Amino acid sequence: MKKINLLAVTHHDRENINPIRPEASQIIGLHLSGKVNVIVLCNPGSGLIPYFEKHGIEVLIDPLNKKFSVSTIKTIRRLLRERSIDVLHLFNNIACSNGATAAIGLKVKVVAYRGQTGNISRLDPSCYLTMLHPRLDRIICVAKAVEDDLKQHVWGNKSKVVTVYKGHDQAWYQKEKADLSDMNLPVSSFKLSLVANLRPRKGLHIFMQALAMLPKEMDIDVLLVGADPHSEQVKKMIKLSEREQQVHALGYRTDAPEVAAASDVTILPTTKREGLCRAVLEANSYGIPSIVSDTGGNAELVKNGVTGIVVPPGEPAALAEAILQLYNDREKCKAFGVAARNRVIDKFNVKQGVDATLAVYKDMLDAQHTE
Rank of each mutant, 00 (worst) to 15 (best):
G47P: 03
N37L: 05
C127G: 02
V111N: 14
V87D: 02
E82R: 12
L88Q: 05
H55E: 13
L90W: 13
N43P: 11
S71M: 04
I104N: 07
R122V: 14
V87F: 06
G56Q: 06
K109Y: 00
V110P: 00
R114G: 03
E53N: 04
L79N: 09
D124P: 01
G118V: 06
S121T: 07
A112F: 08
Y113K: 09
C127P: 03
V87R: 05
I76F: 00
S71H: 05
D86R: 11
F52P: 03
V87A: 03
P134G: 08
E53D: 11
A145I: 14
Y128D: 01
K109V: 00
A103M: 07
T75C: 08
R81V: 11
L90F: 07
R114I: 02
I73M: 04
F52V: 02
N65T: 03
V40C: 13
L80R: 03
L136H: 06
V36E: 02
I94F: 14
K109N: 06
A112E: 10
V40W: 02
L64R: 04
C127L: 00
A145P: 01
V142A: 04
P125A: 04
V59L: 09
C96F: 12
S84M: 03
I49L: 03
K66Y: 14
T72S: 10
F91C: 03
C42H: 09
I61P: 01
T75F: 08
K144Q: 14
V110Y: 09
E58T: 10
L123D: 14
N119R: 15
C127S: 09
V108G: 08
F52Q: 06
L90I: 13
R122A: 12
S121A: 13
M131A: 10
F91M: 12
A95M: 08
L41S: 02
E58A: 07
K54I: 03
F68A: 04
Y51H: 14
G118K: 11
R78H: 14
L106C: 06
L80T: 15
L64V: 05
T75R: 15
G45L: 15
S84A: 07
L123T: 11
L123G: 08
T117G: 13
Y113W: 15
S126D: 11
R81K: 15
L79Q: 12
F91I: 02
T101E: 12
P50K: 10
S84P: 00
